[in-house]
Design a protein around this nucleic acid. Structure first.
Lengths: 302, 302
DNA sequence: TCCTTTATGCTCAACTTGAGCATAAGTGGG
DNA sequence: CCCACTTATGCTCAAGTTGAGCATAAAGGA
């Protein structure tokens, strides 16, 4: 192998184990959810599914896919690697965890274990006034923590968007890390200093989840991955609500439709939806356009 | 640990060693370069610097930084994780390699080992007619390989941008993988079927480099990372050429300046450049705006 | 019937982007 | 000194994109 200081064979003994961690995301109506395991109390979001890496797959990707599909009995849509973390186990060998984001549909038979992801990040849901209020409260607390340090205050304001600074849905991880730095995050040990601080998760799973949400929010703007989380046929409102659920903010309905129409990502099935209000046309995703353009955006209007 | 089928202790023995691989990028005038090691013949791009992961750092990031800085004696600017690969070592334990992208300046004392990255990807340099021609030749070959399969042809055209389809600089990895699939990539074993196919690299380093270039091209559009690769003071032309070198395509000069001016990312030093043609103002990067906005774009006009 | 709810079509102003025109200010050669 | 050549810099214009709102349609229930 090339490289300057390649380790000797003894190095191998010190080498870390690798673990896979999955952020398995779906949308249940207007509620974005992830699969959670080992909940105590039940129905709380506590830990992401994880397991050891197994030899014998063509790629890590394939390994994650078959492992998750075996566990959940759900076919997976889009899957992508998030990040690799190394934790030092008290100065000794380090455990490497490789995290993945995978998208799926909640079928008609929802598994137990799906939990709304905003339980862990109340301030990230800017669709509702309560979510926005949580974000305000945290920004206040952050500014107290910042003290007179100008750079810090500016960073806080840029991330949490006050005073005309726009709110960027995809900066989930940066916001989480700032809150963490400021000691405002409830972790397993110490209790939450504020009510708006969200539920704690096992080990570093909350950070991994933040990474996953951030990636998904970013991706949704330039790649039609939402459709991996929708049923075969859906109304435009359904599509819009899924996008809003993920992005954590509302969009202008007419503009959203204009955008969707312009991109020719969907086609009418010819059928209409039932339900309250005027019936809406049902659409299906046109998988074929993916090949024409390789990448197409869904773009979020404000 | 939570998770469904957590491995027993015996699993640990099968676990892979982890190796770090760095794509260390810089810009030399109008030439984008990466640090290469172990060149044979010398001055060829053969392998990326790599080494074993060492315990004792706060994070992987910090480990890579100190390792690369020790090797190259260059301070690193931006550094980010690219991807984690697992290669199966003949069905046995897998080697995990964690790859990183790091940016730096080539100081006044250039290290040996910097090589133009387009040697490995001639078709990615759309600044020159020869690069565009290489891209055309490869697309022709691809279309022959595709045969009548419509979906394949469409994918090839979308990626290589023919017939009015726009060329997307950041789809480096996808293009590489398509060429690879089509058997058009020269790898260590078999020779190149075409002249335009670029130089082979050790193991999977060419894929890693492709990932790094892709990430850098994408990043440059919404984060001012170019400045990490420029000297303290520079002319707007210098800045533009660096961007063009990375993006692999030319931009409209006046629009580029308008964009830079609008973003207030740079300020005049008051001095002028010497050299051929009318002297130009020298600028420096305003590091302080980074904090105000958290993220600022450099955006590439066509 | 009227009220509530959701669907859908259309317009407008503000802003962004791609492209080009024109002029300025250096250098080196006749 | 004037000219060709090179790079710098200011400005305009047409198209396209985006944010926001007006208006109307079609269903169900009180």
């Amino acid at each position: 192998m090339p490289g300057s200081d390649k380790g000797s064979d003894t190095t191998v003994e010190r080498m870390p184990a690798a673990e896979l961690v999955a952020v398995l995301a779906a949308v249940d109506g207007a509620n974005p959810v992830v699969l959670s395991v080992d909940s105590e109390p039940p129905s709380a979001l506590r830990a992401l599914p994880s397991g050891p890496m197994e030899p014998g797959h063509r790629s890590l990707q394939a390994g994650v896919r078959s492992w998750v599909e075996r566990q959940t009995r759900h076919p997976l849509g889009h899957i992508e690697q998030l990040y690799t973390f190394a934790d030092r186990g008290e100065g000794g060998p380090r455990a490497v965890s490789i995290s993945y984001l995978a998208l799926t549909r909640i079928g008609t038979t929802p598994l137990p274990g799906w939990r709304g992801w905003y339980a862990a990040f109340p301030w990230e849901d800017h669709r509702s006034a309560t979510g926005r209020a949580a974000s305000e409260v945290l920004l206040d607390a952050l500014e107290r923590w910042c003290g007179p340090v100008r750079a810090r205050r500016q960073r806080a304001r840029a991330l949490f968007g006050r005073d005309g600074v726009p709110w960027h849905p995809e900066w989930v991880l940066q916001r989480y890390e700032l809150l963490f730095e400021a000691g405002l995050i409830a972790e397993a040990g110490h209790p939450a200093p504020l009510a708006e601080t969200g539920t704690a998760m096992w080990h570093d799973h909350r950070r991994i989840l933040a990474t996953g949400i951030a990636r998904l929010r970013a991706k949704i703007q330039y790649h039609p991955v939402v459709f991996e989380m929708l049923p075969d046929s859906f109304t435009l409102l359904h599509l819009q609500q899924s996008v809003e659920a993920i992005a954590g903010r509302l969009v202008h309905k007419q503009n959203f439709r204009r955008l969707i129409a312009a991109q020719e990502l969907v086609e009418e099935t010819g059928q209409m939806s039932a339900g309250t209000g005027r019936p809406a046309r049902l659409y299906r995703f046109r998988g074929d356009v993916m090949r024409d353009r390789a990448v197409v955006g869904t773009k979020l209007p404000r």
